[in-house]
Computed example of a mutant assay.
Amino acid sequence: MKTEAYLFTGWAGFFGVMAAVYGVFAHEPGGKAALIVAFLMSALVAAFFWTQYLRRARRPQDRADAEIAEGAGPLDFFAPASGYPLLTAVGVTVLALGVVFGAWLALIGFGLLVPGVVGFVFQYARRSDGESR
């Protein structure tokens, strides 16, 4: 994760410097906002990679002297197929259409969105395989 952390830290630094330079020389708020958001998004990803690197140490992919067999075995828990992403997407879509066409449609969208989000949150709350984190 160290390489990825350095990569996104560099991007965050680039967008931060560009946002500062653009803020000084340009008097247009759209570009400033876009560069600040790009800086914040890349800084968030960089912080995630640094946290993972510090928590899990170096992976075999990060070491030049690593053997192929060191990377064998289960990687992590991956979620099986789920209907909650589709339900959440439909809920957000209907909610957005409800903002345009009326509050009644927004309420239906909200009614679809809430179970989707709750399902996402609690989908693995009662896993029986002993891997709850």
Rank of each mutant, 00 (worst) to 15 (best):
V92A: 15
D76H: 10
F14N: 01
P85C: 04
D62S: 09
A19F: 06
L75C: 06
V99K: 08
G109E: 10
G30F: 10
R55N: 08
G109S: 09
L113K: 08
F39D: 04
H27Y: 00
D76N: 13
A89N: 03
M41L: 15
R133P: 09
P29V: 08
G102K: 10
W11Q: 05
G130S: 04
A47P: 01
L97G: 15
G31F: 06
G102Q: 06
P74E: 14
A96E: 07
A81R: 12
A33C: 03
G109I: 12
G30C: 01
L87E: 05
T9W: 09
L75W: 00
A47W: 13
P80T: 12
M18D: 00
V99R: 09
D76F: 11
A33V: 15
L113A: 12
G73Y: 02
Y22D: 07
L44P: 00
A26P: 00
V92P: 00
I36T: 15
L86M: 12
L112H: 02
A26Y: 09
F78Y: 09
L95F: 15
S42V: 03
W50K: 06
T3V: 11
S42Y: 02
T88K: 02
L7F: 15
V118A: 12
F49A: 12
V118G: 01
A79C: 01
L54I: 09
A66Q: 04
F25Q: 11
F122W: 10
F8W: 14
L54S: 01
D62T: 02
G119E: 05
A96C: 14
A81W: 10
L44V: 13
G73S: 00
M41P: 00
T88L: 13
Y124I: 07
T3P: 00
F101L: 15
W104E: 13
A46L: 06
A81P: 03
V99N: 08
A69G: 08
A79G: 05
A12F: 07
F49S: 10
F110G: 14
A57D: 14
G91T: 06
V118L: 14
G73W: 02
V118W: 05
L7A: 13
I108E: 02
W50R: 08
K32P: 00
F120D: 01
L97I: 12
